[in-house]
Design a binder for these strands. Structure first.
Length: 285
DNA sequence: TCTGGGGTCCTAGGACCC
DNA sequence: TCTGGGGTCCTAGGACCC
C-alpha cells in the first residue's frame, strides 16, 4: 500500500505542474482539477475544447515519467467529469460537452450517477426509473423515493452539479479496524487488537495535529451483525492510552463481547485542532 | 458475494431543557 | 403531578464512495 501511496504522490506532483493548485485528490488514484481559469472562452463548450491539449499533455507526461496510463474526463463539473472518465477506462480521454450532456446521460443506467448505490437503484426501479433518461422525465416527487436528496438527484440527471472542489484535506474521522481470520472472543487477543488500533489512530491524529472529542468502537459478529457504540468527552483526546481505555469501556459497558467477533474497530471523530500538551495552570508549588 | 478497510453524509430516536 | 410543544445534542445505524 505504501508503494501505491508513493507512486500516487509522484503522479500528483506531475498533475500539479500542469493544472496548478486547484486539485482535489479523492483517493490514491483519482483527482479533480479545475483549470477553467486558464481556458476561458466565449462558450462553455469552447472552453472545454481549449482544455483538451492540457489533458493530453498530462497523460503524456505521466506515461513518459512514470510509465503509467491515465484516464481523463473533461467536463464543466465533477459529476460529468467523473462520468466522462469512467466512460472509457484504460487510457481514455473523454469530453462531455454542455450542449450534449443531457443526451449523453439519457441512456445511462441510474447506477452511474454519483450517490446512487444498490438500495437507491432498487427504490428507483420500484417507481419504474431505470435510466437517467427516466429520471429526467419523472414527473413525481423524487423525495418520496430518496428523501432530501431528491432535488440534487434531479439536477444530477440533467448533468447539473454545483459541488465545489474540496481543496482542504480536513478529515472528519479517523479509524482503524481488523477482521479476524477466525471469529474470536479471546480477551487478550481483543485487547491487543484494540491497543494496536488505538496507537494507529493516535499516530494519525498526531500527524494531523488533531484531537478528538468522540471515541467509537465497531463490532461485527459471525452472522455479520454490525454495531457501533460511541462516547463523547469534554476534554479532547490525543493519547493512544486514553483512546484505548474508552474503547475498552465501551465494550465492557454493555458486555458486547458476549459471542465471538469477526471484526473489531476503533475510531475517533469530533476532531478539533490538537493542543500541544499544555501545562495546567496554576502550576503546583 | 457469505462479505476488506477507511471514510462521508443522512436519518431517526431519545435525552434533556425551557 | 401531569401535560404541551419546540429546540438541540448525542447516539446508532445505514447508504454510499473509493
Amino acid at each position: 500500500m505504501e508503494a501505491y501511496r508513493a507512486e500516487s504522490r509522484e503522479i500528483m506532483t506531475i498533475v500539479e505542474e500542469f493544472a496548478g493548485e486547484l486539485i482535489q485528490q479523492v483517493s490514491v488514484d483519482e483527482a479533480y482539477m479545475d483549470v477553467s481559469a486558464q481556458h476561458q472562452a466565449a462558450s462553455a463548450d469552447e472552453s472545454l475544447e481549449r482544455a483538451l491539449p492540457l489533458a493530453r499533455e498530462i497523460k503524456h507526461a505521466i506515461r513518459e515519467r512514470r510509465g503509467l496510463t491515465a484516464t481523463i474526463g473533461v467536463a464543466t463539473n465533477k459529476l460529468l467529469a467523473k462520468l466522462a472518465s469512467d466512460f472509457k477506462k484504460p487510457d481514455g480521454l473523454t469530453l462531455v460537452s454542455e450542449s450534449e450532456k443531457v443526451a449523453f446521460l439519457r441512456p445511462l443506467a441510474v447506477r452511474w450517477l454519483h450517490g446512487v448505490g444498490k438500495v437507491t437503484e432498487e427504490n428507483l426501479r420500484g417507481a419504474g426509473i431505470e435510466t437517467v433518461g427516466d429520471l429526467q422525465d419523472y414527473a413525481g416527487d423524487l423525495r418520496a423515493l430518496v428523501g432530501s436528496w431528491g432535488a440534487e438527484l434531479k439536477r444530477f440527471a440533467f448533468g447539473d452539479d454545483d459541488r465545489a472542489l474540496d481543496l482542504g484535506d480536513e478529515v472528519k474521522s479517523i479509524s482503524s479496524e481488523n477482521t479476524f481470520l477466525r471469529d474470536t472472543d479471546d480477551r487478550p487477543t481483543l485487547r491487543a487488537c484494540l491497543k494496536e488500533q488505538a496507537e494507529d489512530v493516535a499516530k494519525s491524529l498526531a500527524k494531523r495535529r488533531l484531537a478528538a472529542h468522540t471515541v467509537q468502537v465497531k463490532l461485527r459478529y459471525g452472522d455479520f451483525t454490525t454495531l457501533t457504540r460511541q462516547i463523547s468527552v469534554e476534554e479532547p483526546l490525543t493519547e493512544a492510552k486514553e483512546i484505548y481505555r474508552l474503547g475498552c469501556w465501551l465494550l465492557a459497558k454493555e458486555k458486547l463481547v458476549n459471542r465471538p467477533l469477526r471484526l473489531l474497530g476503533l475510531g475517533v471523530s469530533g476532531l478539533v485542532e490538537g493542543h500541544i500538551n499544555q501545562l495546567t495552570l496554576p502550576f503546583p508549588r
